[in-house]
Structure formats: C-alpha cells, structure tokens
Design a protein around this nucleic acid. Sequence first.
DNA 1: TGGTTACGTAACCGTCAAGGTACATAAGAG
DNA 2: CTCTTATGTACCTTGACGGTTACGTAACCA
Lengths: 108, 108
Amino acid sequence: MEAALRALADESRRTMLETLSRGPVTVGELAALLPIARPGVSRHLRVLREAGLVEVRQDAQRRIYTLRPEPLAEIDEWLGRYRTLWEQRLDALHTEIARGKRQRRSTR
Amino acid sequence: MEAALRALADESRRTMLETLSRGPVTVGELAALLPIARPGVSRHLRVLREAGLVEVRQDAQRRIYTLRPEPLAEIDEWLGRYRTLWEQRLDALHTEIARGKRQRRSTR
DNA sequence: TGGTTACGTAACCGTCAAGGTACATAAGAG
DNA sequence: CTCTTATGTACCTTGACGGTTACGTAACCA
C-alpha cells in the first residue's frame, strides 16, 4: 500500500490509471493521451508495476497493460480507519441527506 | 484531493494522522512519537494543514492540532471509480473459496 | 537480410521535498 | 522585565523525482 500511495501522488499516473480503468491499453496509446514523452510514460508504468497497480502482457512488439486494482483496495481498507470519523461529521452536517450514501460498505 | 494524496505519500505524515485520529494533540506530543526533530514535524503539519487534513487551535503557547477527515472522504470518493473493479475481483475470489469450501454466498 | 515498429533503459538536468541546525516569536511564569 | 516553554521559519544540504534526448533491443515485415 505504501508504494501504491506514492504512485497515486503523481497526476500523470492517476490519469494513466483512469485510462486503464476503461480497459487494457498499450504504451503508445497511453503516451498519446499524456503531455509527456514516451520514455516518461515507460518510467511511470514501471512505478505502477512495482506498486502492483498494473500488469503487462506481451503481444508481438506491443506491451499491453491492464489495471490491477487490488492495491487500491488496500488503500481503501486503510482509509477505513478514518471512515467513521468523516461519516460522523457528514452525518452531523446533513443528517437527513446522507442516508443512502452508505450501502456501499463492502465486507471488511 | 490532489494535495491530500501528496500528503499521504509520506509515511511520517501518515503516522501523524494515525495519532491524530485518536484525538487532538500538540506539536511536541507528535514530535515525541516520531523519529524526526520538531521543526520537521512543524513542516509536516504545514503540509497537512494546506491539504486541509488538520486544523489548529491555540492554547497558550501550545498549538493543538485536530484531524479534519474531509479530504480523506474525497479520496475515498475518488477511489470509488475503481471500487467496482476490485470488488468484482474479490467476489470472484470469494466464490472460488466458497466453492472450495462448498459454501453458498448470501446475496447482498 | 535490412528496415521499421514499439518499447525499455541510460545518462543527464532542473526542481522539489525532507531532514537538520540555528534563529525568531509569542505567551506564561517569576 | 527577564526567563522558559512551545512552536514556527530561514537556510542549507542531500537525495529522490519527473522530464528530455539518445540509444539498445526484440519482434514483425518486405
């Protein structure tokens, strides 16, 4: 989770994850969507790989990256320690309105 | 959320938040729990303040810091885009386990 | 075989971040 | 007032980070 949090601190990498969330993608396609050159993208992908946030598979010359969301789940779990705190506050703010907002608490 | 994510990338600051989650605390108390000198703690607190993650109130010479969890809620919300992705995976894993144990999952 | 495509890595540079020491300041205490 | 306590800020150094260009390399293609 440590490494994943550091990975998320960079905006380019968050954009890359956003793109990857819509499906597998090659390095070139990622680079086309970002304001940085391809080698930079490769380096970012390395960081994401080492954080366990992406997987690579090879297809001819291409490398196809896919999102691996598990580390995000770990971050979510870590945030869980604080969830009750902000929920208390939100409840205090708009007690009535926040009703339907909490059915998404999965098993933990 | 941007600034909050950067703030969370540092381990000392995460430890500080952890401490703050148990209640308000002074700078000196925080510094006593960390391997870094007090001025460093002050700087970390500045980052947390600018990220909206803490609030200060003054009591005589002391500054009492309290956690402000709202930015964490924003991060949680941002993670929400990916939540269904990892839940699908976890569900797959769980059904696998359940199948191995010959258990039946209750419907959510 | 030689060329092209797609990608990673190396080397380099500027910037930023995190740490420490020294100093400034504000509030009580005497 | 002066001294002490509690904290922030200035300044410096070091190391990590993000970006670029140049280069290496594996796989396909003519």
